[in-house]
Amino acid sequence: MDTEALRSFVRAAELGQFQHAADELGVTQQAVSKRIATLERELEVRLFTRTARGVELTLDGQALLPHARSIVAGVERAITAVRPGSRALRIDVLGLRSAQAVVLHDYWRSHPETNLDVVTLRVNDPRAAVAAVEAGDIDASFRSVTDPATLPPDVQMIHAFDSPLELLVGPRHPLASARRLTPTQLRKHRIWVPGIAPRSEWAEFYDQLATDFDLRIDAAGPHFGDEVLLDTLADSAGVATLVGARDRYIWPTNYDLRRIPIVNPTLAYPLSLILPRLNPHPELRGIITHLGTLPRLPETVWLPSWATTPQRGDSDTANARRSQPRQR
């Protein structure tokens, strides 16, 4: 089946006119009409009926449309997998308020010519992000696979940056007046981190953090979103949570929430970038260079054990930033 005929069919169906489809595809209206006529003969059905405003799909055309879209999208993914510079750089971040998104936004503001598409895959298992990179659905993902040996041979993972943690509390919390806190001072306080998903790298992170510092990290209950979490903190005298120093949170001024740095050691969440080993999108080079310019953390930093394991495919720039020792 001719994929160009399917592409013409999809655009004509979406735009409602052969001429508009031809203009977008860069061909003549006659070429679009011939492609669709050939497709109709091959399928032995009519796909369109003409109206005063253009064309409308027949029932057979409506049945074909979702399948045609899928085929056209698959062909486009196949082409861009070997020609990644021809379209926007697609990078997956955990959330649009996350440290990864903030860092990408800072980069884009200083390089506005970058054709960047920031997406959220909404998957918890980092292996799903790896599969999306391998398939060419995205160009890179800010996720971490805690066992790099399990990565497919055509995918690599490099260190991106380490995100220091802060304690976020409401004004009535016993620690609210502190300017800085040590991990020891967090013991016996309830640290609520709802929505820790099994098989996610952050589940393993919080397990190690709780074990190493004897912390009470509570993941009970569903996560109804950041707004509900902030509401709870503002009203509570006994609940706190952990957030990344670069994570962006917005709350009403009357909440009077406080973000308190954690030091001696600084608790840091390691962030990695998963990308293809061969023919990565050309715009990734600039972003990786930018990651290497981010401010260094203090010398005394705690990182989970899997963050100190050499990561397959680390660039020289990324390796240069992994000088902070893991502390217990």
Results as ranks from 00 to 15, higher is better:
206 Y>M: 08
243 V>M: 13
258 R>P: 08
225 G>R: 10
239 V>E: 15
256 D>G: 09
257 L>H: 07
248 R>E: 12
236 S>N: 05
263 V>G: 07
235 D>C: 13
242 L>K: 08
228 V>R: 11
228 V>K: 08
279 N>G: 09
277 R>Y: 00
230 L>Q: 04
264 N>S: 14
280 P>R: 01
229 L>P: 02
281 H>E: 06
259 R>A: 12
239 V>S: 15
275 L>A: 06
278 L>G: 00
268 A>P: 09
286 G>Q: 08
236 S>E: 03
272 S>Q: 07
240 A>I: 08
246 R>H: 13
208 Q>K: 05
230 L>R: 01
224 F>M: 15
281 H>V: 04
205 F>T: 00
272 S>V: 03
260 I>A: 11
223 H>W: 07
219 A>D: 07
209 L>A: 11
235 D>L: 15
247 D>L: 09
219 A>F: 00
284 L>T: 09
212 D>H: 08
222 P>G: 10
267 L>N: 06
237 A>C: 11
251 W>E: 12
272 S>E: 02
268 A>W: 00
272 S>M: 06
256 D>I: 00
254 N>A: 15
262 I>C: 03
263 V>W: 04
244 G>D: 12
217 I>S: 07
285 R>C: 01
210 A>C: 03
221 G>A: 05
260 I>W: 00
233 L>H: 13
247 D>C: 11
250 I>H: 12
240 A>P: 01
256 D>L: 14
253 T>M: 14
273 L>F: 01
216 R>L: 11
227 E>A: 13
207 D>Y: 05
283 E>K: 03
212 D>I: 07
237 A>K: 05
276 P>E: 00
222 P>L: 02
258 R>C: 11
251 W>M: 10
270 P>H: 02
236 S>G: 11
262 I>E: 01
271 L>T: 13
280 P>Y: 02
220 A>L: 06
283 E>W: 02
228 V>W: 06
232 T>R: 14
249 Y>P: 09
248 R>V: 13
248 R>S: 14
247 D>Q: 13
222 P>A: 12
268 A>G: 10
268 A>I: 03
267 L>F: 02
217 I>M: 07
229 L>Y: 09
245 A>F: 15
204 E>T: 04
